[in-house]
Structures are given as structure tokens and as C-alpha cells.
Nucleic acid binder design. Structure first.
Length: 886
RNA sequence: GCGGACGUGGCGGAAUUGGCAUACGCGCUGGGUUUAGGUCCCAGUACCGAAAGGUUUAUGGGUUCGAGUCCCAUCGUCCGCACCA
């Protein structure tokens, strides 16, 4: 036995990182058959300053997959870059006077160092930042391609205005009526903005989701499905009494209920409302509109919001029966969904029912349940299911409601009073942002021509560097010359039909979700070691088609509808432009859980809680290890133990990955975030937890190094388990079983937690003194290979220490032999009426009578069946024996 | 309200997909090494019981020789969406 070497992670980790870097170990070629390739990608980070534990978890999972796939012999594309446009850079500019670019690129340099210190196996030659001139310029090219495809338009309408960011937001970025970034209220504002026609792809975005079932988390699929929100129904035109020149069109999914319409509701913002309202009711309607306008979005749509309306004084005519029904302006009708007008059928819609009761409006039943047991007076509750049309529905009476939907729509269509329509909840993507630190929208305006796209030869539009950040409005708008100066310094002009015209640039920049919508494609053809960046066009079709779709994409569930929907849309648009033929970007999606931690706080009556860092607290535990008391070290007074929550600075439940790496090493940190929990669940950080991971690596280290001399000269045991006895035999069997289980765990669900558990089990069985050296060597080299994707540095070091040839990655993932796992004998549990009464060890080949006899001869089994009749005997070969008695 | 996921020791979780419930880790208990320990090693640790043995996967029922796993109901938790006509 040797004196074991000390496990010095701070020495071996940088050593291997340098080795990998100088060997260019993770560069990948583009010219290999696709089936031998694998593209794994983690959502790239915003360069906020330094890595947090969420990054460490996300990238540890991705890196373990990348390294595992490499050990399986695949050529793995595993790139990294920076989502580097965005608001915090401008905030930093306001606060500390640094230019957003300076701040951003300093952060990138620092965080790149941190990623390298974690030992992640990226192909750094493909790295880029979205704010790099090369990437931003190519995105402007794509923007013009989108313009050409008719996917870009400018429209003035009510937009979501973030009071926190002072800029517009896309619908996806409004969460609970608040801004997704700042949590500040969002109000509605009328503004002209640039839009991307994502709705053009609504059907395909929805339809393709079914092909992703099983490969994407259900939660993401259902969120996207709901967000796209497809409804099939009809648009029906209602005449307005006294206005021959206009009509109100209502969208409904229940045209079968049209004979039950007793009123109509209209959005207060509806464009026709002012023309319809008679003077007698104008004051009341205006008052109602003002009331609706004055409440914020979340109050109007929140669950406590009261359904309210006001009679407009106008009447609509039901096209099927000529009935005259009152028109109400109602706060729950949304102007930009459907047509902003609803035909109300209180007998068959819950909300219309409540509204009718409140305002004393008639309720007419037109659908009757097929099952009479379900019949209830419609004055009590709306009947919202399918049924049969009642006798008051003219020629449609007696028709099942599903048939009537079609028949009535057909009738409306032939009478030119309506038409079949499919409506989506999905809105077009509002792309423009009134900010500096983003990619400029390549448009300009002239007095005569209005908005004109720039020509590709006039690109790129680059951001000026001499700007002032005072926190008020868009700095680009306030720049003296930028918006009227061409790239060559001359006054900006646009060639119109009558010659050049003076122009000024668009000062809006693109939503930063634009950059993250195609970066994964750009990685496939980007090379930052070459002057033309490897691909002068935005994308190189051959390479994009070679690598896409990404085999495995890993990131947080918070992007379920924003980034992941935009990226899917962009992929389709890029396809139609001709940059690729792959219509879906991500084959498999893994949404990793958050990194959480207990919170510690004190209540302050009437004020916010005071939170404590864990090292400011002492805890006491009872005999079972439950914490029952926590006190602050400073004053000894009690502190509340709060919920486990996502790490955040304001809750003081964070831990800095940097300090973990310094104290325990990157391998321990990586192992910790991969152990104990499957990737999609939240992981709870604890000091004890990381010490456990570190302790395990130290154990493995000692086990390998103290026997290094003895093991260096022998080869790992390569024979049959049957040729060994005792502990040697069971270790060989265990090795095969553990390899199988690790392989299955990673192949199926990326279940690193169970793979780690398997490795620990094997470690527990490796008792050096009881084993032949070649068996011990088999066990240890197997462990090192299985753990290498997760803890690459220590495994590479131990691989050498054990005297194994080459490096652990090229040694590959170990193989197993199924027949070596199970021995010739099986221990059968013997149940009597489903309860285990004994165990018998039998030859695997034994069947039938001999097996039954041995089982029943077992002492405790015999006692359990004594004096009873044997009804049935179930034998599952290799598994279990169950004796049924009565 | 609608949609989805899920309830397993003190805690995080495992269970080869209907076949030995509680793997692995944390914590805790006892013992040892150490001047010391945020060290390391050994043993124990679902519950009840002195033991024999019995009980246990939120609760109640069902299917089955056999259920954590399948079916039904109830309770509870988490997530998403929310006047979507």
C-alpha cells in the first residue's frame, strides 16, 4: 500500500484544463456522417457579471451529456456564447457611467474564465456574443430577408408599455399584468411599432408540437399549445339598428347557439363603438370607458375583477331570426381577440349567464341535453355542453349541436351573413424596443416615402458610442447626428422614385429575443479564428442542415413560451427564406430545475422581513435530526426557518460558485449539482450536500492512489465472473450491473442522480484487501470511466494514477455483458399469499417440480402453508415464487 | 375556474415499468483514530415491539396470485393559463 497522494483539486483541475485547451480537445469537424454526430446545447447566458448556481447546474448537465456522448464515440458539437444585448448593461451605464459595451465585454471575459475553471468542454472557436458586430450585422441581413418575405410590418395599436423599462413588451413578456423582467406594472399605450408575423406560422407551430411529444416536457408542450390557442368557429355579422352602413361581427365557437342570443357585448375600446352609441347614452358609455381605462391590466383581468357592463343604447339584429337584442359595452371583452364583439347566449355560457342575471336580460334555452337527467332550468345555470337544438331553432330544431354548428355556419355563409373562421390567441411578436443596447432595426423614414427598409449594401447599422445615459427615454433618439448620418459620414438619404430623399433612421432596436432565436444555427457555421468568421452569410445552409435540429437543448422552464416559441418561429422563417431545410430547431428539450435553498428570516411587523445568510445562524436538532431551533449568532435570538426558494440575492439564500470551486473544486461542485435529484427537479443546496460530494471524491481518490503501485502493473480483470469466487466474483458481476444501470440511466432520462448512486454502490463494494489486484483494477477503472463525464479532472488524473493507457475519454464508455450480471444461481423470495416467508437460493436453470419442492421445503415457508390447501403456484423465472393457499 | 404534474423514512430521493419498497446520499445515534476537527474509519438508523412477529408508499375502495406502479373516489401540494367568446 502506498502513502496516498493528497487530493489537490486546485492543482489538478487547472492542469487538465490547460491540457485540454492546448490539445484543442473539443473542436469538432463538420464533415462526418450525421449519425456519428451529436449537438448538445445549453441556453447561453446573459453576461450579468458572474456565474450563479443556476448556470453551474445548467452547464454541468450539458457538459456531462457532451462528455458522455463523446465517450460513446460520437463527435459532439458543444458550443457556448453570450446573449449580450439587454437592459442591465444600460442600467449599469446609468449607474456607473461605463458604456454598456465596456461593461458587457468585461463581464464576458470574467465569466468565460469562470466557465473554463469549471472544466466545461466547449468548442471555444465557435464562441460569439450577440452584440459582436459580425453577429448583429448578419441579423440585420436576416431582418431584411424577413421584410422581403412579408413577415415584418409596422402598425400603430395598443401595446404593452412597461413602466419599469420604459419600452414596449411582447405579449409573451407580460406576466400577470407585469413586466417579466422588472415586475413593474404594464399599461396599454397607443404607439406605432414593428411586428414580426409569427401568426403566419400559428398552425404549424401548433401542429408540430405533437411530433415533439415524448421529447419535450409536457409542461412546455401544453403551455405552447395554450399560448397559440387555436379555436374553430364562425364569424357572424349582426346588423346595427339605424346604421345601414355598418355591421358588428362576432366570433363564436358555438354558432349552434345563435338562436339563443339575447344581447351582445362589445369591448369598450372597439373602434365602431363611438359611431354606434346614440347621444342619449353617450355620457354613460364614456364614463364606463374612462373607468375601464383607469384600472391597470392586472386589476381588469385579475380573478377578483368584477364583470361589468353598460347598455350602449344601441341594438343589434340577429341574422338568423331578426330578433333585436341590446348591445352592452363590457369590461371582460378584449378588443384584440376574435372580433372584439361577442354574441351573448346566457342559456349556454357561464359568463353570459352571470351577466344576464346581473342586468336582468332574458335567457332563452336553445340547446337541450341528450341525457334528460342533466336537464336543469336555464334560469339557474347555463348548460354549456353539446346537446340537441330545441324547437325554437327554425329549420335546425332537433339537430344535434355538433351537426348544427356546421349546418348553421353553412347557412350563414350562403346567406353572406357569416363564415367559418379559425382564430388564434397568439398575437404577432412586437419586436421594437425603445432602447440603446440592442440591434438597430434597419429602417429609415422620409417625408414622402414613409418607412423604407435599408438596402443590404447600407448595412450594418452600427450603434454610436458617444451616447448619454440619463435613464430617460431612448438614448438613440437624443443623439444629435446618428439617425441622420450614413455609414460613410454623409447625410443619410434614401433613393426614391424622384431621386434621393433626406432620411432619418429608425431609433428602435430589436427585442433581444431576436438574437436568441437563431444563435444555435449560427454556432454550426461560425469560426472566430478565421477573418471571415467562417461564414460570411448569416448562415451556411449545408452546415446548418448538417447539425440541426439540436439533439438536446437544455435550459430553464421559464422560457417555455418566450424563447422556445420565438426560436421555433424563426427556424420556420429561416427555412422559408432558404437558409435551411430544417423546420424545427430542437429535437429534444430538457428543462432543468432550479437551485434552491432554505430561507432564514425574522418578521418585522409592518415592514419587510429581514433575511439572514446561513453562516449567521446556529441551528439545533432533535434526536431524529430535525431542526427545531435556529438562532442568530449575533444576538442569540430566534430566527424563522422559511420555505426553500430559488436562490436570490434579496432572500440571502445564495451561494457563490466561485467560492465552492475554490474550497471544494469544480469536480465536487459539478458532482453535487448532478447527484441526489434528477435534472428536471429543483435541487436544494446545502453545505452538507457539497461536503458529501467532496467526501466521495476524496474516498475515490484515496482508494485509487493508495493502491496505485500494486495496480500499475496488472491489467483489469477481463475474464468471466464464473472463473472467480467470493468477493472477486461478486465485484465482477457488480461491475457489469453498474455499467448497465448507468448506461440505461443516461440513455433514458439523463438521470445522473441514479448513475452516481450506482457508482457509489460499486465503490462501497470495492474492499481492496479482499480482492485480487486485477479485479480491484477493473472496479476502479470502471468507476473512473463512469464518473468521467461528471467529474472529468479527477477521473483523468486517476486514470493515469491507475496506470491505464491513454486518456479516459478515448478509453470510451465501458461495455457490459448482460450474461455476466446474473450468476448461475438465483435467490428466489418465496411468498405465501403475497407475503414473503422465506428465500431459497436455486440454480438458475432449475424449473418445474424440483423448484417447487425446494421452495416448499423451506422451513418458514413450510410453517406458513402447514395444514392448508395449495390453490395455485406462481413461478416467475429468475424473479419470484408465490404460493397461494386457502 | 380551466389545464398539467405529483403525494414513498427526520430530509433529498431510488425502485430494471405489475414481482424482494425505502437503493444512494444527507442528517442523526454509538464506537474508534486524532493535540484538534467543517477530518477519516467502523457499526446502526422506515414505524411498532424486549423478542417472535406485525405494520407501512396521502386517505378510502377496486382489479390481480401479487400494486408505490393499473382503475375509481376523496383530500392535499406544486406549476401553468386565466374573463379567449
Amino acid at each position: 500500500m502506498n502513502e496516498p497522494r493528497t487530493y489537490e483539486h486546485s492543482v489538478i483541475e487547472p492542469k487538465w484544463q490547460q491540457t485540454w485547451e492546448s490539445a484543442k480537445a473539443y473542436l469538432v469537424r463538420d464533415d462526418l456522417p450525421r449519425e456519428k454526430c451529436y449537438y448538445v446545447l445549453e441556453m447561453f447566458p446573459y453576461p450579468s457579471g458572474k456565474l450563479h448556481m443556476g448556470h453551474v447546474r445548467n452547464y454541468s448537465i450539458g457538459d456531462a451529456v457532451a462528455r458522455y456522448k463523446r465517450m460513446r464515440g460520437l463527435h459532439v458539437l458543444h458550443p457556448m456564447g453570450w446573449d449580450s444585448f439587454g437592459l442591465p448593461a444600460e442600467q449599469a451605464a446609468i449607474e456607473r457611467g461605463a458604456h454598456p459595451g465596456t461593461w458587457t465585454y468585461e463581464n464576458i471575459a470574467y465569466m468565460r474564465g469562470q466557465l473554463k475553471r469549471m472544466g466545461f468542454s466547449y468548442d471555444w472557436t465557435r464562441e460569439f456574443a450577440c452584440s459582436d458586430p459580425g453577429y448583429a450585422a448578419r441579423e440585420q441581413d436576416i431582418f431584411l430577408d424577413l421584410v422581403e418575405k412579408g413577415l415584418v410590418y409596422r402598425k400603430s395599436s395598443l401595446v404593452n408599455w412597461s413602466t419599469g423599462l420604459n419600452c414596449v413588451l411582447a405579449n409573451e413578456q407580460v406576466v400577470d399584468g407585469k413586466c417579466w423582467r422588472t415586475n413593474m406594472p404594464v399599461i396599454q399605450k397607443e404607439l406605432p411599432q414593428w411586428y414580426l408575423r409569427i401568426t403566419h406560422y400559428a398552425d404549424e407551430l401548433l401542429g408540430n408540437l405533437s411530433a415533439l411529444e415524448g421529447s419535450w416536457p409536457d409542461a412546455v408542450l401544453s403551455q405552447q399549445k395554450h399560448w397559440i390557442g387555436k379555436s374553430q368557429g364562425a364569424e357572424i355579422d349582426f346588423a346595427v339598428e339605424g346604421h345601414n352602413d355598418l355591421k358588428l361581427t362576432a366570433f363564436t365557437t358555438r354558432p349552434d347557439t345563435i338562436f339563443g342570443v339575447t344581447f351582445m357585448s362589445i369591448a369598450p375600446e372597439h373602434r365602431l363603438l363611438d359611431r354606434i352609441v346614440p347621444d342619449s347614452h353617450r355620457a354613460a358609455v364614456e364614463a364606463f370607458k374612462a373607468e375601464v381605462r383607469n384600472v391597470s391590466a392586472q386589476e381588469r383581468t385579475g380573478d377578483t375583477a368584477e364583470k361589468k357592463g353598460v347598455f350602449t343604447g344601441a341594438f343589434a339584429i340577429n341574422p338568423v331570426n331578426g330578433h333585436k337584442v341590446p348591445l352592452y359595452a363590457a369590461n371582460f371583452v378584449v378588443a384584440d381577440y376574435g372580433t372584439g364583439t361577442v354574441m351573448a347566449v346566457p342559456a349556454h355560457d357561464d359568463r353570459d349567464h352571470a351577466f344576464a342575471l346581473k342586468y336582468g336580460i332574458e335567457i332563452i334555452e336553445v340547446i337541450q341535453p341528450v341525457d334528460p337527467a342533466k336537464a336543469k332550468p336555464v334560469s339557474e345555470a347555463a348548460f354549456t355542453e353539446a346537446g340537441v337544438l330545441a324547437g325554437n331553432c327554425a329549420q335546425f330544431s332537433g339537430m344535434p349541436s355538433d351537426e348544427a354548428k356546421i349546418a348553421i355556419t353553412t347557412w350563414l355563409t350562403t346567406s353572406a351573413k357569416g363564415r367559418a373562421v379559425t382564430t388564434f390567441r397568439l398575437r404577432d411578436w412586437c419586436l421594437s424596443r425603445q432602447r440603446y443596447w440592442g440591434n438597430p432595426i434597419p429602417y429609415a423614414y422620409t417625408d414622402k416615402l414613409g418607412a423604407v427598409p435599408l438596402r443590404k449594401s447600407d448595412l450594418p447599422v452600427t450603434l454610436p458610442t458617444d451616447v448619454v445615459f440619463d435613464g430617460k427615454g431612448n438614448p438613440l433618439e437624443k443623439h444629435a447626428t446618428w439617425s441622420v448620418t450614413a455609414n460613410d459620414g454623409s447625410p443619410l438619404s434614401i433613393r426614391g422614385p424622384q431621386g434621393p430623399e433626406v432620411a432619418r433612421r429608425e431609433t428602435d432596436t430589436c427585442d433581444t429575443f431576436m438574437e436568441s432565436s437563431w444563435y444555435f444555427a449560427r454556432y454550426t457555421c461560425h469560426d472566430n479564428t478565421k477573418p471571415d468568421l467562417g461564414c460570411a452569410a448569416p448562415l451556411d445552409k449545408a452546415r446548418v442542415d448538417h447539425w440541426l435540429p439540436v439533439d438536446l437543448y437544455i435550459g430553464g422552464i421559464e422560457h417555455a413560451v418566450m424563447h422556445l416559441l420565438y426560436a421555433r418561429f424563426f427556424q420556420k422563417a429561416l427555412c422559408d427564406i432558404g437558409y435551411t431545410t430544417k423546420r424545427e430547431p430542437f429535437k429534444r428539450l430538457l428543462c432543468q430545475g432550479m437551485v434552491c435553498m432554505e430561507t432564514l428570516y425574522r418578521e418585522n411587523p409592518g415592514e419587510k422581513k429581514t433575511y439572514f445568510y446561513p453562516d449567521e445562524i446556529d441551528v439545533e436538532r432533535d434526536a431524529k435530526g430535525r431542526v427545531f431551533k435556529a438562532t442568530a449568532k449575533t444576538d442569540g435570538a430566534p430566527v424563522q426557518i422559511g420555505r426553500v426558494q430559488k436562490m436570490s440575492k434579496s432572500l440571502r439564500n445564495t451561494v457563490d460558485p466561485q467560492s465552492l470551486v475554490e474550497q471544494y473544486g469544480a469536480d465536487s461542485a459539478r458532482l453535487f449539482v448532478l447527484s441526489n435529484v434528477p435534472p428536471e427537479l429543483d435541487v436544494i443546496w446545502s453545505e452538507d450536500g457539497i461536503r458529501g460530494s467532496h467526501r466521495y471524491l476524496k474516498r475515490l481518490w484515496v482508494l485509487c492512489t493508495e493502491h496505485a503501485a500494486r495496480l500499475a502493473t496488472v491489467a483489469p480483470y477481463a475474464g468471466k465472473a464464473a472463473d472467480l469466487a467470493g468477493a472477486d466474483q461478486s465485484v465482477v458481476r457488480k461491475v457489469h450491473a453498474v455499467i448497465k444501470r448507468c448506461t440505461d440511466a443516461l440513455e433514458k432520462d439523463f438521470a445522473f442522480n441514479t448513475a452516481v448512486a450506482q457508482c457509489m454502490e460499486l465503490t462501497n463494494e470495492l474492499k481492496p484487501d479482499a480482492l485480487k489486484p486485477e479485479v480491484l483494477k477493473l472496479g476502479l477503472t470502471t468507476l473512473v470511466r463512469l464518473l468521467a463525464p461528471m467529474c472529468p479532472h479527477i477521473c483523468e488524473e486517476l486514470w493515469r494514477e491507475l496506470g491505464a493507457p491513454g486518456d479516459v475519454t478515448s478509453a470510451g464508455w465501458p461495455a457490459y455483458d448482460e450474461s455476466e450480471i446474473a450468476g448461475d444461481s438465483v435467490e428466489y423470495p418465496v411468498q405465501v399469499n403475497g407475503k414473503i416467508r422465506g428465500r431459497v437460493v436455486l440454480d438458475r436453470s432449475l424449473t418445474g417440480k424440483a423448484l417447487e419442492d425446494t421452495a416448499m421445503a423451506h422451513e418458514t415457508v413450510k410453517a406458513a402453508i402447514e395444514g392448508k390447501t395449495i390453490r395455485k403456484l406462481i413461478i416467475v423465472p429468475g424473479k419470484i415464487i408465490n404460493i397461494v393457499v386457502a
